[in-house]
């Protein structure tokens, strides 16, 4: 019975080797084994987007990824965006636009927006809305979130 597996993954630039049961998700390993509590678990079935991280350049809901599937993956979580202790321009734009209410959806929103801007630095409003359609904000502060992404986009080359 092979139910414990050693998984190598690079998270926020650091190489990790984790031994985990096959039943655990990437979200659980990030939070419980690596202590990266910025990644939130909301619905735990891929519908709310709170657990969004960037895996191999694409946004994914980490509650739907089995940790063992992340073997060899390059992962960025919300903790990986700040540089030198300062918020990234995207995070700063969320602060300046007041795009945070209760804050639970925010890490997922930021990661979805980060994945968008990395591929498409100057998205249209419709493209921003599509990129964020997998992230729910139950405070319903969507307008300010879109405005924050637009602000960060204006600051990009």
């Amino acid at each position: 019975m092979i139910s414990e597996i050693r998984v190598a993954m690079k998270v926020n630039g650091t190489e990790y080797h984790v031994t985990t049961q096959t039943s655990r998700t990437l979200a659980e390993v990030l939070r419980e084994d690596l202590g990266l509590l910025g990644t939130k678990i909301g619905c735990n079935k891929g519908e709310c987007g709170a657990c969004t991280v960037i895996m191999n350049g694409r946004s994914v809901t980490s509650c739907l990824v089995l940790a063992v599937q992340a073997e060899g993956a390059i992962i960025t979580t919300i903790e990986g965006l700040a540089e030198g202790g300062k918020p990234s321009p995207l995070e700063q734009a969320f602060v300046e636009e007041g795009a945070v209410q209760c804050g639970f959806c925010t890490p997922g929103m930021v990661m979805s927006a980060e994945a968008l801007l990395a591929l498409n630095p100057h998205p249209s409003e419709a493209e921003i809305e599509t990129a964020l359609e997998g992230n729910l904000c139950r405070c319903t502060g969507y307008r300010k979130i879109v405005a924050a992404v637009q602000k960060a986009s204006r600051g990009r080359e």
Partner: peptide
């Protein structure tokens, strides 16, 4: 197991009767 978007939810709900996973994602 391919993308896992459906399968992982089924695993959590106890709906997968098989006991071996063959992962195709690589």
């Amino acid at each position: 197991l391919s993308g896992g978007t459906d399968m992982t939810v089924r695993l959590k709900e106890g709906l997968v009767k098989e006991d071996i996973i063959v992962d195709l994602s690589h």
